[in-house]
Design a binder for these strands. Structure first.
Lengths: 336, 336
DNA sequence: TCGCCTCATGTTAGCGCTAACATAGAGCAA
DNA sequence: TTGCTCTATGTTAGCGCTAACATGAGGCGA
């Protein structure tokens, strides 16, 4: 606002300098300054130097809010995850942000905390910032959430799953098949009574169905399912509630390691190979930790960062395959 | 743009509906619609109902980009962390976002990847979105970064440390003292040759200085310092490079657990108490995992989420104490 | 009756920038 | 010279919203 020009190196006197203040100081029109910022090749070298000097003198920082309004491009993407702390979704956020930041996109991060109401609220909040795409873990929990995303007419990427009717693009893996793969392995190992421990979110539930269906198809008794509160992620106590069980598939590695800790207390954990374990334990996520503990943790390995990078790519390209199955891998170590 | 009104439930025909389209449909002026969105109490109930119906009919989503430009309030905060994956900073992001999201603030997330150049670039990128505050882990690595933040004239919160000359507010703990506390404990335990493993970022380095100074003051030999690459966070191999050492302080729990894994391979890990360990290991962060493994991990406990929540509070309140020391706690378990 | 307040709503201008369309001068072939 | 092209820069209008200031219709005390 100050019509006085700030002296070089003095720092700003009041409000942040604007394009036109830079323009005035450099003796050009504002559009020329705008071009120096965005398409420097269109400006003659001497003019450009003068403008750049003026920008430095004033400490000019472009106002992308105004730029976004004028150009209808915000250069931002909205990212919605259930939770970021202590979770493998952090890898996904890292992956997509590593891909998007160099291209000038900012990441607007929101957490749903596994709460459908909060999810819808966060989706609306994200959309009101007019991101150029939305990347979310899973799919909207409510019809309203779906509607919001469909109407937004921007790329939407659902991740960490392969929904049957995606809104737009998908980067994930088949959680049901992961459950099946674990059951097959445990059956082949001669296990008789399986159990699943973890949350009851959509993806965890699909893993459970895969495990159960395959166990039943193999003639085993109906597996047990223990739904754990999200707080006791390393659930030491879970073992006490699963007597007679000789194999456990945990919804994530943290649950698995917690369960193993319960087994250890009960004297049911060996330092030997899988065949020596009274109770087999398989995790999901392939945390580095799983390789470091003893016995080492068998797990379904999923590349969270690849999911993020793929999701980022899908927001940038409108054509091509919009449903990417990144798969998973059953990594067998000593726990089961 | 379409002057045709969209029929209820039909979904948008073209561009997103604007305030004035809603206003036209409800037979009021745009400012009245704006008031229904932001200050509904100022609008008569019948008018409000009509406007709300029109908003629903058109699927109106307010454009916060335009609102921000007009009101000079973006309702966003910029958050800069070294990395979000696999790190305790995720707790901090979760904590601050839990506090800010209900108040209508969005989190714009950026990662520096421990790279000073990238940090400056991300700071400039954040500032160009005109956030109402910046929360960062640590302090700017360069003079340029400091200058940018000082000139921004918004609340700045530096976290995870207690810088001597903060830009504005601080929410952290004394990393030097953490090193001292660990050294004191190890000396009391009769350890003779200490070592520090971890990164050489500013906070890790301060922990190292604390450990070293206290060890020397206690008459021990100069501790060893092993700078690990960020990639081998669980550094199994570190042990081989530290012969003769009988106590290790790891910059974080992941390093500590990795080191213990190396000790196990070398036959230097016991399931008994700290006094039975040939080599004591102390971590930092108090990951849940540390409680689950065997032997349980002794660690400096730091409340990452409390740092985040405190930082959020500091961005909202301009007055009051701007330097909050959240402390730490030496939690002694079986590893050292 | 007047003047003044309150409540509900409207008018105007402008936030800081960019798209789209001028304009002006230089270079140059015919 | 004319007329065309190319390069560098400028002018104008407007993105969708909100702050600040009207306006106008009642209510109400004296």
């Amino acid at each position: 606002m100050s019509s006085e020009l700030t002296e070089p190196g003095t720092g700003p006197t009041g409000a942040a300098p604007t394009l036109s203040e830079v323009a005035k100081r450099a003796g050009v029109s504002s559009i020329t300054v705008s071009r120096v910022v965005r398409m420097p090749d269109l400006v003659a070298p001497e003019t450009r130097a003068r403008v750049e000097q003026a920008m430095r003198d004033l400490g000019y920082i472009p106002n992308l809010v105004a730029g976004a309004l004028a150009s209808a491009r915000t250069n931002s993407v909205g990212v919605l995850v259930p939770t970021i702390a202590n979770s493998i979704f952090a890898d996904t956020v890292q992956g997509l942000s590593d891909k998007l930041e160099p291209l000038g996109f900012s990441v607007i991060l929101a957490q749903s905390r596994y709460d459908a109401v909060r999810e819808d609220r966060m989706l609306a909040a994200l959309l009101s910032r007019r991101p150029e795409a939305i990347i979310m873990v899973g799919s909207p929990a409510t019809e309203e959430g779906s509607r919001l995303l469909r109407n937004a007419r921007i790329p939407i990427v659902e991740t960490w799953d392969l929904p049957a009717n995606p809104i737009d693009a998908v980067a994930g893996f088949d959680n049901y098949k992961a459950g099946v793969a674990v059951a097959k392995h445990l059956v082949a190992q001669g296990r008789k009574q399986l159990a699943f421990i973890g949350g009851d979110d959509p993806r965890g539930t699909r893993r459970w169905f895969g495990l159960r269906d395959e166990a039943l198809a193999s003639g085993l008794a109906e597996p047990r399912r223990l739904i754990l509160d999200r707080k006791d992620s390393g659930s030491v106590a879970a073992h006490a509630r699963l007597p007679d069980v000789d194999a456990v598939f945990a919804a994530n590695d943290a649950h698995a390691i917690g369960f193993m800790s319960g087994l250890r207390k009960a004297g049911l954990l060996r330092d030997g190979p899988a065949s020596a374990q009274p109770v087999a334990v398989i995790g999901l996520g392939d945390l580095e930790m799983g390789r470091l503990i003893s016995p080492t943790l068998s797990t379904i390995s999923v590349h969270g960062d690849a999911i993020g990078r793929t999701a980022a790519t899908l927001t940038l390209e409108r054509g091509g395959e919009r449903r990417i199955d990144l798969g998973f891998e059953l990594v067998l170590r000593d726990s089961g």
